[in-house]
Protein backbone atom coordinates (compact mmCIF):
# COMPACT_ATOMS: atom_id res chain seq x y z
CA UNK A 1 0.00 0.00 0.00
CA UNK A 2 1.40 3.37 -0.91
CA UNK A 3 1.67 6.03 1.75
CA UNK A 4 -1.12 8.08 0.17
CA UNK A 5 -3.42 5.04 0.08
CA UNK A 6 -2.52 4.25 3.65
CA UNK A 7 -3.35 7.76 4.86
CA UNK A 8 -6.55 7.78 2.82
CA UNK A 9 -7.69 4.54 4.43
CA UNK A 10 -6.73 5.48 7.97
CA UNK A 11 -7.24 9.21 8.05
CA UNK A 12 -9.94 9.09 10.71
CA UNK A 13 -7.75 7.20 13.19
CA UNK A 14 -4.82 9.44 12.35
CA UNK A 15 -6.93 12.52 12.92
CA UNK A 16 -7.94 11.27 16.36
CA UNK A 17 -4.30 10.63 17.24
CA UNK A 18 -3.31 14.05 15.94
CA UNK A 19 -6.07 15.73 17.91
CA UNK A 20 -5.05 13.89 21.06
CA UNK A 21 -1.43 14.83 20.46
CA UNK A 22 -2.31 18.48 20.02
CA UNK A 23 -4.70 18.45 22.95
CA UNK A 24 -2.11 16.92 25.30
CA UNK A 25 0.51 19.44 24.25
CA UNK A 26 -1.88 22.39 24.52
CA UNK A 27 -3.21 21.40 27.92
CA UNK A 28 0.26 20.84 29.30
CA UNK A 29 1.44 24.16 27.89
CA UNK A 30 -1.49 25.88 29.58
CA UNK A 31 -0.77 24.24 32.94
CA UNK A 32 2.90 25.17 32.53
CA UNK A 33 1.87 28.71 31.63
CA UNK A 34 -0.14 29.09 34.83
CA UNK A 35 2.64 27.62 36.96
CA UNK A 36 5.43 29.36 35.04
CA UNK A 37 3.84 32.80 35.15
CA UNK A 38 3.09 32.37 38.85
CA UNK A 39 6.70 31.36 39.46
CA UNK A 40 7.97 34.24 37.33
CA UNK A 41 5.79 36.73 39.17
CA UNK A 42 6.95 35.34 42.51
CA UNK A 43 10.65 35.64 41.77
CA UNK A 44 10.97 38.51 39.31
CA UNK A 45 11.66 41.15 41.97
CA UNK A 46 14.63 39.25 43.33
CA UNK A 47 17.65 38.82 41.05
CA UNK A 48 18.79 35.83 43.10
CA UNK A 49 15.34 34.25 42.94
CA UNK A 50 15.16 34.83 39.19
CA UNK A 51 18.58 33.27 38.74
CA UNK A 52 17.71 30.20 40.81
CA UNK A 53 14.37 29.70 39.05
CA UNK A 54 16.00 30.06 35.63
CA UNK A 55 18.88 27.75 36.59
CA UNK A 56 16.52 25.05 37.89
CA UNK A 57 14.11 25.10 35.00
CA UNK A 58 16.91 25.14 32.44
CA UNK A 59 18.58 22.21 34.19
CA UNK A 60 15.29 20.33 33.87
CA UNK A 61 15.32 20.99 30.16
CA UNK A 62 18.74 19.35 29.96
CA UNK A 63 17.42 16.04 31.27
CA UNK A 64 16.81 13.46 28.52
CA UNK A 65 13.05 13.13 28.14
CA UNK A 66 13.12 9.36 27.92
CA UNK A 67 15.05 9.23 31.21
CA UNK A 68 12.56 11.50 32.96
CA UNK A 69 9.59 9.57 31.58
CA UNK A 70 11.20 6.34 32.67
CA UNK A 71 11.91 7.72 36.10
CA UNK A 72 8.26 8.68 36.51
CA UNK A 73 7.00 5.13 35.86
CA UNK A 74 7.84 3.79 39.35
CA UNK A 75 6.28 6.90 40.92
CA UNK A 76 3.24 7.62 38.80
CA UNK A 77 2.72 4.45 36.82
CA UNK A 78 1.73 4.62 33.17
CA UNK A 79 -0.66 6.79 31.17
CA UNK A 80 -1.73 10.34 31.69
CA UNK A 81 0.03 11.13 34.97
CA UNK A 82 3.67 10.65 33.90
CA UNK A 83 2.96 12.18 30.49
CA UNK A 84 1.46 15.37 31.89
CA UNK A 85 4.08 15.67 34.62
CA UNK A 86 6.97 15.38 32.17
CA UNK A 87 5.46 17.66 29.55
CA UNK A 88 4.66 20.38 32.09
CA UNK A 89 8.18 20.22 33.54
CA UNK A 90 9.74 20.60 30.11
CA UNK A 91 7.45 23.47 29.19
CA UNK A 92 8.38 25.48 32.28
CA UNK A 93 11.75 26.95 31.32
CA UNK A 94 10.80 29.00 28.26
CA UNK A 95 7.75 30.38 30.06
CA UNK A 96 9.47 31.14 33.36
CA UNK A 97 12.45 32.72 31.63
CA UNK A 98 10.32 34.85 29.36
CA UNK A 99 8.00 35.90 32.18
CA UNK A 100 10.98 37.14 34.19
CA UNK A 101 12.50 38.90 31.22
CA UNK A 102 9.14 40.37 30.22
CA UNK A 103 8.34 41.65 33.71
CA UNK A 104 11.85 43.07 34.11
CA UNK A 105 11.44 44.84 30.79
CA UNK A 106 8.52 46.96 31.96
CA UNK A 107 9.61 50.59 32.21
CA UNK A 108 9.84 51.60 35.90
CA UNK A 109 8.34 54.97 34.97
CA UNK A 110 5.18 53.17 33.83
CA UNK A 111 4.97 51.38 37.17
CA UNK A 112 5.41 54.65 39.05
CA UNK A 113 2.68 56.19 36.97
CA UNK A 114 0.33 53.27 37.66
CA UNK A 115 0.95 53.48 41.40
CA UNK A 116 0.66 57.23 41.15
CA UNK A 117 -2.87 57.12 39.76
CA UNK A 118 -3.86 54.93 42.68
CA UNK A 119 -3.73 51.37 41.35
CA UNK A 120 -3.15 48.67 43.93
CA UNK A 121 -0.10 46.44 43.68
CA UNK A 122 -2.25 43.57 42.40
CA UNK A 123 -3.87 45.97 39.94
CA UNK A 124 -0.50 47.09 38.66
CA UNK A 125 0.56 43.48 38.25
CA UNK A 126 -2.50 42.23 36.41
CA UNK A 127 -3.47 45.32 34.47
CA UNK A 128 -0.08 46.78 33.63
CA UNK A 129 2.88 44.46 34.15
CA UNK A 130 1.42 41.21 32.88
CA UNK A 131 -0.28 43.02 30.04
CA UNK A 132 3.06 44.44 28.95
CA UNK A 133 4.91 41.17 29.56
CA UNK A 134 2.31 39.16 27.64
CA UNK A 135 4.15 39.15 24.28
CA UNK A 136 7.20 37.65 25.99
CA UNK A 137 5.08 35.10 27.86
CA UNK A 138 3.31 34.15 24.64
CA UNK A 139 6.65 33.66 22.88
CA UNK A 140 7.69 31.41 25.76
CA UNK A 141 4.51 29.37 25.35
CA UNK A 142 5.14 29.08 21.64
CA UNK A 143 8.65 27.75 22.21
CA UNK A 144 7.35 25.35 24.86
CA UNK A 145 4.67 24.03 22.54
CA UNK A 146 7.20 23.24 19.81
CA UNK A 147 9.43 21.60 22.38
CA UNK A 148 6.61 19.39 23.68
CA UNK A 149 5.67 18.13 20.21
CA UNK A 150 8.61 15.75 20.01
CA UNK A 151 8.57 14.84 23.68
CA UNK A 152 4.88 13.96 23.54
CA UNK A 153 5.73 11.44 20.82
CA UNK A 154 8.14 9.70 23.19
CA UNK A 155 5.48 9.73 25.92
CA UNK A 156 3.72 6.99 23.99
CA UNK A 157 6.30 4.72 25.61
CA UNK A 158 4.57 5.33 28.97
CA UNK A 159 1.19 4.82 27.27
CA UNK A 160 0.58 8.51 26.76
CA UNK A 161 -1.84 9.60 24.03
CA UNK A 162 -1.05 10.93 20.58
CA UNK A 163 0.90 10.31 17.39
CA UNK A 164 3.79 8.65 19.19
CA UNK A 165 1.62 5.54 19.31
CA UNK A 166 1.47 5.49 15.51
CA UNK A 167 5.26 5.64 15.33
CA UNK A 168 5.67 2.92 17.92
CA UNK A 169 3.19 0.65 16.22
CA UNK A 170 5.25 1.14 13.06
CA UNK A 171 8.31 0.07 15.00
CA UNK A 172 6.55 -2.96 16.44
CA UNK A 173 5.47 -4.11 12.98
CA UNK A 174 8.95 -4.08 11.53
CA UNK A 175 9.01 -6.18 8.42
CA UNK A 176 5.29 -5.79 7.72
CA UNK A 177 4.10 -3.78 4.75
CA UNK A 178 2.66 -0.94 6.77
CA UNK A 179 5.55 -0.39 9.18
CA UNK A 180 7.09 2.46 7.23
CA UNK A 181 3.67 3.99 6.47
CA UNK A 182 2.86 4.06 10.17
CA UNK A 183 6.19 5.62 11.21
CA UNK A 184 6.00 8.13 8.37
CA UNK A 185 2.40 9.08 9.16
CA UNK A 186 3.27 9.57 12.82
CA UNK A 187 6.36 11.63 12.09
CA UNK A 188 4.80 13.82 9.44
CA UNK A 189 1.68 14.12 11.57
CA UNK A 190 3.72 15.62 14.40
CA UNK A 191 5.38 18.07 12.00
CA UNK A 192 1.99 19.15 10.65
CA UNK A 193 0.45 19.55 14.10
CA UNK A 194 3.54 21.57 15.12
CA UNK A 195 3.21 23.87 12.10
CA UNK A 196 -0.52 24.35 12.63
CA UNK A 197 -0.10 25.20 16.31
CA UNK A 198 2.79 27.57 15.48
CA UNK A 199 0.50 29.34 13.04
CA UNK A 200 -2.17 29.49 15.72
CA UNK A 201 0.32 31.22 18.03
CA UNK A 202 1.06 33.85 15.41
CA UNK A 203 -2.68 34.45 15.09
CA UNK A 204 -3.16 34.52 18.85
CA UNK A 205 -0.36 37.08 19.14
CA UNK A 206 -2.02 39.31 16.54
CA UNK A 207 -5.31 39.13 18.41
CA UNK A 208 -4.14 39.48 22.00
CA UNK A 209 -1.08 41.73 21.95
CA UNK A 210 -2.06 45.32 22.59
CA UNK A 211 -1.31 47.36 19.50
CA UNK A 212 0.41 49.92 21.66
CA UNK A 213 2.95 47.30 22.70
CA UNK A 214 3.70 45.56 19.42
Amino acid sequence: MSFADYVASRWQELLVDAAQHASAVIQCTLIAAVLGVALGVAVHRSPAGSAVATALTSAVLTIPSFALLGLLIPVLGLGVAPTVTALVLYALLPIVRNTIVGLAGVDPAVLDAARGIGMSRAGVLTRVQLRLAWPAVLTGMRVSTQLLMGIAAIAAYVKGPGLGNVIFSGLSRVGSANAINLALAGTIGVVIVALVLDGAYVLLGRLTISRGVA
Binding site: G150, I154, A183, L195
Partner: peptide, 10 residues
Protein backbone atom coordinates in the same frame (compact mmCIF):
# COMPACT_ATOMS: atom_id res chain seq x y z
CA UNK B 1 9.88 19.86 14.60
CA UNK B 2 9.92 16.23 13.50
CA UNK B 3 10.06 14.01 16.57
CA UNK B 4 13.46 12.44 17.14
CA UNK B 5 11.84 9.10 17.79
CA UNK B 6 10.11 9.30 14.42
CA UNK B 7 13.35 10.00 12.57
CA UNK B 8 15.09 7.20 14.39
CA UNK B 9 12.38 4.65 13.69
CA UNK B 10 11.97 5.72 10.06
Amino acid sequence: AAPAIGLLVL
